[in-house]
Each structure stands twice: as structure tokens, then as C-alpha cells.
């Protein structure tokens, strides 16, 4: 599979006395969905925030394409090619769906300082935005104000915005939360397709979805990695069975 495009080494984040992420080392590869599961409070979202630069780590390091990301701000990491979606919907509510995606696409282009041309007048930006809406299944909602979308559609928009920035690495923080079964299926399929030429870290509670797309599975408990490896092997691990989900849900899949 070659070298990992992104890897962490002993990544740790402490908030006062609480260690939210504890010496986590993991690797993301292009062509693979790396699912991270664990009970609430396991540190999954904090881990995402450390990878995206939203939070600085207390210790440990993040490497992207052989480059140490220490000290880089979230916008710099984003421009390098690490995109993320948020667990709590984080979109521009007063803007239309198209403008949300257009703005996301705009961040990748050198047109920012062309102050005398209309923002909508750049074909390359518009195309990226349209493609992202199409992929996330929002083409029909193009001109709706984001605040008027259903919760599930807002989740789709969250992903569309991330896609419009053309990332190489996608950090998806519970993308399916709050989505209806139809949209869920659509997004799972999309994640499967994207995996071909992206590295994806998927945080998700929907086990059916996780086992259908994940090529690698990491289980986190109390900030630490409990088990990591092939999904089937991890599922069979007694430690995981004991510590997580009371055995049942995982076996039912």
C-alpha cells in the first residue's frame, strides 16, 4: 500500500487533568477508509481536532506526506490537503447551498484578491462547487438557504463543503449522525467511492456503515487505542468485546 499519507506518533492531548487523547499512533493510506470507533468521550473528536489543527497537541506529532504539521494552523493544514467535516453541523446558515460550496471551493483558488470581478464569475470555482453538491446529493437544493434545509441535508452539505476543497485526506466526524436511511446509504456509497483516491478517517457510530466500508478499524476507549487492525480481527478481539458495546451490537452485524 506504500507509505501512509498521514500518520501520528504518540499523539496526546490533555485538558487540565483529563487526558482526552492518550499516545495515539495511527496511519492513514490513500485508498483506505480507516474507521475510528469508541464510546462517547473516547476522544475521537479531539483526535480529529488534533489532525485538522483546530487544537494543538500537548505532545506527540502528526506527519503529512513526510512533513511535520507541528505549529501549523488549521487553515494551512486545510490548504495542504487535509479536509474535515464537523460532528456538530458547522455551515454558513444564511447562505445558499451553492454559496456554501462555492466559498469552500474558492479557498483553493488564487482568485481571492480579484476584487473587481463577481464572485460567481469564476468557472473553475463554480465547477468544483457543482461537483461537490452533485456528489453529496444536494444538486436539487442548490439555491436553498442552508438554514432552511433538513438536518440530514445540512449534514450532506457539511460533506459537500469538505469535498469542494479537493482534499487528499478526509476526516469525517460522524457524517451519518441524524441522516435518514436513504441519505445514509448514499453517503456510505460516496465514502466507498472516494476511498479509491483519498485517505479517509471515518468516525462513526453506525456499525453497519463502518463494517461495509472500513479497511482498517481502530477502537478507542478513554483516549487510548484499545485495538487496531483488520476490521474482522478487531471485531473478534476479546478486549474489544469486553470493553465496548457490551459485546452485543458488534456481534449482531
Amino acid at each position: 500500500m506504500g507509505d501512509p499519507i498521514l500518520r501520528t506518533e504518540g499523539l496526546t492531548k490533555r485538558f487540565g487533568g483529563l487526558t482526552a487523547v492518550d499516545r495515539v499512533s495511527l496511519e492513514l493510506y490513500v485508498g483506505q477508509v480507516h474507521a475510528v470507533i469508541g464510546p462517547n468521550g473516547a476522544g475521537k473528536s479531539t483526535l480529529t481536532n488534533l489532525l485538522s489543527g483546530d487544537l494543538p497537541p500537548t505532545s506527540g506529532s502528526v506527519w503529512y506526506r513526510g512533513r511535520d504539521l507541528a505549529g501549523l494552523k488549521s487553515d494551512e493544514i486545510s490548504r495542504l490537503g487535509v479536509g474535515r467535516s464537523y460532528q456538530k453541523t458547522n455551515i454558513f446558515l444564511p447562505f445558499t447551498v451553492f454559496e456554501n460550496c462555492r466559498l469552500a471551493a474558492q479557498s483553493r483558488t488564487p482568485h481571492a484578491w480579484r476584487i473587481f470581478r463577481r464572485a460567481e464569475g469564476f468557472a473553475d470555482i463554480n465547477r468544483l462547487a457543482e461537483e461537490a453538491m452533485e456528489a453529496a446529493g444536494l444538486a436539487a437544493r442548490r439555491d436553498r438557504v442552508a438554514a432552511t434545509l433538513s438536518h440530514g441535508e445540512q449534514r450532506q452539505l457539511e460533506i459537500a463543503m469538505c469535498l469542494a476543497t479537493r482534499p487528499r485526506v478526509l476526516l469525517l466526524d460522524e457524517p451519518l449522525a441524524g441522516m435518514g436511511p436513504h441519505e445514509s446509504l448514499r453517503i456510505v456509497e460516496l465514502i466507498g467511492r472516494l476511498a479509491a483516491d483519498h485517505a479517509i478517517m471515518l468516525i462513526e457510530h453506525d456499525m453497519e456503515a463502518v463494517f461495509s466500508v472500513a479497511g482498517h478499524l481502530t477502537v478507542m476507549v478513554n483516549g487510548e487505542v484499545l485495538e487496531s487492525g483488520e476490521p474482522e480481527a478487531v471485531r473478534a478481539s476479546p478486549a474489544v468485546q469486553m470493553a465496548y458495546l457490551g459485546g452485543e451490537e458488534l456481534l449482531d452485524v
Partner: peptide
């Protein structure tokens, strides 16, 4: 312009603007 739209984005949700790059 794209610059003006970016300013409105910052006013609306600066954190998200940074995450978008």
C-alpha cells in the same frame, strides 16, 4: 467579489472559514 464573499463568510462563521483553508 470573492474577497467580499470571504468577508461575509468570516462574519458568519470565522472558525469554519479557517477550516476551509
Amino acid at each position: 467579489s470573492t474577497f467580499g464573499h470571504a468577508l461575509l463568510g468570516i462574519k458568519t462563521n470565522e472558525h469554519r472559514m479557517r477550516a476551509l483553508g
